[in-house]
Amino acid sequence: MPELPRKKVGIIACSGEELPEGTITRLAALRVLHELRPEDTVTICLPLFLAGGEADRNFARFYPTIALDGCDKQCAFRGTEKYSSRPAAAIVVTDLIARHGLDKPHGCRKLDAAGMKAVELAAQEVADTVEKLLEKGER
C-alpha cells in the first residue's frame, strides 16, 4: 500500500516587528514547530507568501492553516485569505492576553516576563488547535 503524505497544518505568524505582540507570534510559532508539534506543522513565511511565493500559497489552498496575529489588524489572517484561502483558525495575541488577564508585554527585541508568558500560552493554544484540526480532518 502506498504511503500517503502526512497531513500537516500551516502556521502563519504576522511577525510584526513594531510590536512586542509580533515577536510573541514569531516565538510561539517557532515553539510549536520545534517543540510542541514538530511532526504536524510547518511555518509559512508571510512575506514570501505576500510577495507571491506560489509553493506557500498552494500549501494554504490545500492544507489547513492557523493565522497567528499580534493585533486586531490581523495581517496574517487577511493576507492568507486574500492570496490563498481562508485560514481554518485565527488566534490574536492581544485577545489572548486580555482573556488570560496578562500584563501588557514589552520589548520587541527581547520580551519581558509577561511577553514570554504570552508566548507559552499562544504556543499551547496553537498546538491545541493543530490537534483539533487534525482530528477533524480539516480540508
Binding site: 511577525s15 516587528e17 513594531e18 509580533g22 508571510l46 512575506p47 505576500l50 495581517c75 493576507g79
Partner: peptide, 19 residues
C-alpha cells in the same frame, strides 16, 4: 532604528505595509 540612528529612521513592518 533603536540604538544608532533612531532619530533619522523609522522601522516599517512588512506585513502591515503590504496589507
Amino acid at each position: 532604528t533603536e540604538d544608532y540612528r533612531s532619530e533619522f529612521t523609522k522601522l516599517v513592518p512588512l506585513a502591515l505595509l503590504v496589507m
